[in-house]
């Protein structure tokens, strides 16, 4: 087994970006108990916002005639991505945040699919089903020769990851987070204390969505070219698997879950191509993730690093 350095760096970058997604999801599900199934949609909105803002018109698709592009500096895209994704989260939240748990799951799932439908069909804005390419990379070509690009980019992703980890943990431990936890345990209690719980849930939803948008921007500027099939709901389910396996309610668990799940998904890159079942490997690893998810829920309901005090509705049994 030959492990090349560049392959390790690519894997680390992907893990880092997924870990940022998992942190946002942990605020929704782990802290607030919201069933968000739209994470791939927030990720997509962030990626496309950043890509459209930083590429010139028409430079993208080959056949599609994209008529909108701004060619702004990358930093503009990275600031705008969380804003538009957060606004999308807010919009989706306003229509559905008052709904009961699993109704919210269905509406958010449908919302994410709608976002993907719009991205696939409005070619004037997004290049449609074709790839939107030539997305600029930050500091490309201006790095000193001794520093490989992927090492630099991993540093950038790690910086954002650590920053968002610290920030979201701070939110969770602040009075704001304590209200979220109270909503998670029993919404009637904070309501009785005069808290506007719908507003708190909306803020939690928008914050997690905005972070997913930032992750989308990091993704777009790393892979140069994006297309709608990168943002299928399967991605949302993988992030769910990360948060549950790592342990809902724990930000450390969310990051650990991202390492485990992405590790399973990427490990086969390091295997030689001619092993038996080589062609089926991508599907086999998704089966492994499915089995792991069910096994963790059965044997360790609070996940590997989960918050044991989290009595949440979801995790301790008992009725509705």
């Amino acid at each position: 087994m030959v492990v090349s350095f560049s392959l390790v760096m690519v894997t680390l970058i992907i893990i880092g970006i997924y870990a940022i997604l998992a942190i946002g999801m942990n605020m929704h599900w782990g802290d607030t108990g919201l069933l968000n199934f739209a994470h791939a949609g927030f990720f997509a909105v962030g990626a496309y916002t950043s890509a459209i803002l930083t590429t010139p018109v028409g430079d993208a698709g080959l056949l599609a005639s994209r008529t909108v592009g701004f060619d702004f500096p990358i930093v503009v895209g990275m600031i705008a991505a969380p804003i538009t994704a957060g606004l999308f989260g807010l919009l989706l939240g306003i229509t559905s945040i008052r709904l009961d748990g699993d109704y919210l799951a269905i509406v958010t799932l449908a919302g994410a699919e709608t976002a993907r439908l719009i991205i696939s069909n409005e070619a004037w804005l997004t290049s449609g089903v074709q790839t939107l390419n030539n997305i600029p990379r930050p500091l490309d070509e201006s790095l000193p020769a001794v520093l490989p690009y992927d090492v630099f980019y991993f540093g950038l992703v790690l910086l954002v990851l650590l920053g968002s980890y610290a920030l979201f943990r701070h939110f969770a431990n602040a009075p704001f987070g304590r209200v979220l936890h109270a909503i998670r345990e029993d919404e009637d209690v904070p309501k009785a204390l005069g808290k506007d719980t719908a507003w708190f849930k909306l803020k939690s939803f928008a914050l997690g969505a905005a972070l997913a948008g930032l992750a989308g921007s990091l993704w777009a500027h790393y892979v140069y070219a994006i297309q709608p099939t990168m943002f299928l709901s399967n991605l949302t389910f993988s992030i769910w698997a990360m948060v549950i396996i790592g342990g809902a309610g724990s930000y450390f668990g969310a990051v650990a879950g991202a390492v485990i799940v992405t590790g399973i998904r990427q490990i086969t890159r390091f295997l030689p191509g001619d092993i038996p079942l080589g062609n089926e490997l991508p599907y086999l690893r998704l089966i492994i993730i499915g089995v792991l998810l069910i096994a963790v829920l059965y044997y360790r309901p609070h996940g590997m690093f989960g918050d044991k005090e989290r009595s949440l509705a979801g995790m301790s049994g008992g009725g509705n």
């Binding site: 069933l35 748990g101 699993d102 799951a105 389910f237 769910w240 698997a241 549950i244 998704l286 089966i287 993730i289 499915g290 089995v291 792991l292 998810l293 069910i294 829920l297 309901p301 509705a313 979801g314 995790m315 301790s316 049994g317 008992g318 009725g319 509705n320």
Partner: peptide
């Protein structure tokens, strides 16, 4: 809780 079952069904769907 029903929500645990929902997540279990996601795993089942993957499989």
């Amino acid at each position: 809780d029903p929500i645990v079952l929902l997540v279990v069904s996601i795993g089942m769907a993957f499989i």
